[in-house]
Amino acid sequence: MSLPALEDITAPIDGVVRIETSPREKATPIIMEMMRSVYPHDQVFGEFCTVNTYIDCPPDELYGYLADTRSLEEWTYSLRGFMRTEDPDLWLAYDRLGSETKIFTRTVTNRAAMTVDYHCAWDQGHHLWMVYLMRVVDARVVLNKPGSVVLWTNCHHPFYDDNPYPEAAPPQRPVWVGDFWDMFGAGHELELRNLKQIAEYRHRNGLPITPAWMEESR
């Protein structure tokens, strides 16, 4: 039997569950097996780390704030001291998780989709392999109320397990960014709460979401 939208596939594909081949009676046990009360940490945060939240703040304003790389100085836990490099789109800061560790950041944005992707790396700015993918969604569309929904995903790049540029690391540094991967879920949740509190405070008090010091130095 030909399935809708799959006319080019001549044989069943293992792992594809559709009502045409798996009626509800067959699919329900599969779904129930997926709905666990406890999930192994590696299953949730092994290859991907995703956190999200609702923020009572206009989406356009929140997007504009996140699109400025220097906002990371305010809402992240440990990135401080942002300064421009010779490449005006590449910023240098310090990640205090690694003591005197340099972190380089290039922010790639799409206003129409309200995506903000931070391409980063410890120690060197030539290969920005740590990519933080963020999207701002108008909450009126997905939650039927004013405000923003923020989606944030990280992928477990293999370099988290093995520093590809050990020669660029500061001497005697005891840690590598990948040492913290198991904490990314909780750490990013903490930072997302920071973002929520900062943005909602400013919106609640009639302040610009992007502070004046950022606007004035653009």
Rank of each mutant, 00 (worst) to 15 (best):
S99W: 13
Y94R: 12
L128W: 04
S99M: 15
T85Y: 03
M114E: 04
N52D: 11
S78E: 13
R140H: 15
V149D: 00
C120W: 00
S78V: 14
C57T: 10
L143M: 13
K145V: 05
P59D: 14
D87R: 08
T109F: 02
P88H: 07
T53G: 15
T69G: 08
L143E: 10
T85P: 02
L79K: 00
R111W: 15
L90K: 07
T53H: 12
L66T: 02
W75E: 04
D95W: 09
Y118R: 05
I55M: 01
G125L: 03
G125D: 05
F82G: 08
D68I: 04
G125P: 06
T76C: 00
Y65P: 01
V108D: 01
A113R: 07
R106P: 01
G64P: 07
C57M: 09
A121Q: 10
S71E: 00
H126V: 13
R140F: 11
G98D: 07
Y77G: 09
I55Q: 00
S148H: 05
D95T: 09
W75P: 02
S71N: 05
L151Q: 08
M114P: 02
V51L: 05
F82H: 11
D95N: 11
D138L: 09
G125K: 04
M134N: 09
N52F: 05
T69F: 02
G147E: 03
A113K: 08
S78W: 14
W75Y: 08
I103N: 06
R84G: 06
L133G: 03
R84D: 03
M134D: 01
L79D: 00
N144P: 07
S99G: 14
V51S: 01
T76V: 00
I103K: 06
P88S: 08
V137G: 06
M134G: 06
Y77H: 13
R135S: 06
R106K: 11
Q124N: 07
G147K: 04
R140I: 12
F82K: 09
R70I: 00
P58K: 06
I103M: 11
L72G: 06
E61L: 10
W122Y: 11
Y132T: 08
